[in-house]
Design a binder for these strands. Structure first.
Lengths: 204, 204
DNA sequence: GTCTATACCGCGATAGAC
DNA sequence: GTCTATCGCGGTATAGAC
């Protein structure tokens, strides 16, 4: 009776990890509907029956996988913001560059976002987990920083934070997610420089 | 020899329209992989063989459908911006409200964007068509307007336009697309008011 | 606990009647 | 030009050996 309702108890944890690792590849590349449990099993190096002994069905496997990824993907570590507290321009630039670099460095990240958005109708709980673990901390972190700098004279730090993040996210969506950077060209540094000028304005 | 390579010539155009209409429902709701040609045929009220006589295969039907939708969905008509040229604050607010209203009014629009993003890996050409027909005109229209108002003293009108649009798009993505408005709450009017203050700043 | 083998269904695409 | 009927394949999920 010590068992929880989780299916994973009393099953080899290494197989569970192998299945999840295999499932990452398949689901991220193919999407939910186009991913077959046969290919997941093959990618994990186990039989299909083993997959079904660790996870109730395809939907449960997908949900467990996305929940795990949503917890792993954190766009920002608050340490960097604490490090250079002096110049807001440097902090904001570092904030944006870290975001852009994380996307460049982790090729899974874009695919993950694509999957979250694409399946957000059929799996709204996963979309919410993504916002809770990735978007919300980013917004709150930047909001708190901006609010801690009264010399910026921002009437609403949270709106400023959303504008800053929203601008960069929209830029990434057009350029990388939708593969259309050439259709609406914009240099990264030009965007960052002038975006900073919108937030950090000269004292009036 | 007057035939083009298009499959549609010499086939009843009304059936073609019926098939496309049926396909809209199925593809938008289920996504590409989970949509079956049987259901498309049923929704269109024709047989599956008829579908295949009008479109080469599933991929061709999907591509034709998305291309058509991408041309229909225009977020903005430039007339409204011309109408109230006086006060930039009114123009920008009208711009944002029209965008938000269009999303509220057309329930297909969000689903369409979800599909475009979700399939942007497997159908990059469709993602590019979406940017070309929907995003690009919006950015260019707002950029031109902002550039035509030198009294705003914007160092880079295009970056300002992207910040404005990006902020709103990001807001809609969190609230409506990802169903997470309650996780990161923000009143619409509060966002708009303070976003305007970032663009239209008091003369320094 | 993990495997092989299989049941059962629905998929995309086509052949042939009319 | 559109239909009905069907083919062949690959899907999810499970039963039973070990």
């Amino acid at each position: 009776m010590r068992k929880t309702k989780s299916v994973d108890r009393d099953l080899s944890p290494e197989k569970t990890a192998a299945i999840l690792d295999g499932a990452i590849q398949e689901f991220l590349v193919k999407g939910y509907a186009a991913t077959s449990m046969d290919r997941v099993a093959a990618a994990a190096g186990v039989s299909k029956a083993t997959v079904y002994s660790h996870f109730q069905d395809k939907e449960a496997l997908f949900t467990a996988l996305i929940q795990r990824l949503a917890c792993q993907k954190e766009l920002f570590n608050s340490e960097k913001l604490q490090a250079i507290q002096d110049d807001p321009a440097l902090v904001l630039r570092a904030f944006a560059l870290e975001m852009l670099d994380k996307i460049q460095a982790d090729p899974h990240l874009l695919t993950f976002v694509r999957l979250i958005i694409g399946e957000s109708s059929r799996f709204p709980a996963l979309a919410r987990a993504f916002v809770q673990n990735v978007e919300k901390p980013s917004i709150e972190l930047l909001t708190q920083y901006l609010a801690s700098r009264p010399e910026l004279r921002l009437p609403d730090p949270e709106v400023a934070a959303r504008a800053f993040i929203g601008t960069i996210v929209h830029y990434v969506i057009l350029k990388d997610l939708l593969h259309s950077g050439d259709l609406v060209p914009m240099e990264r540094d030009r965007l960052l420089d002038n975006l900073l000028h919108l937030i950090i304005r000269p004292a009036s």
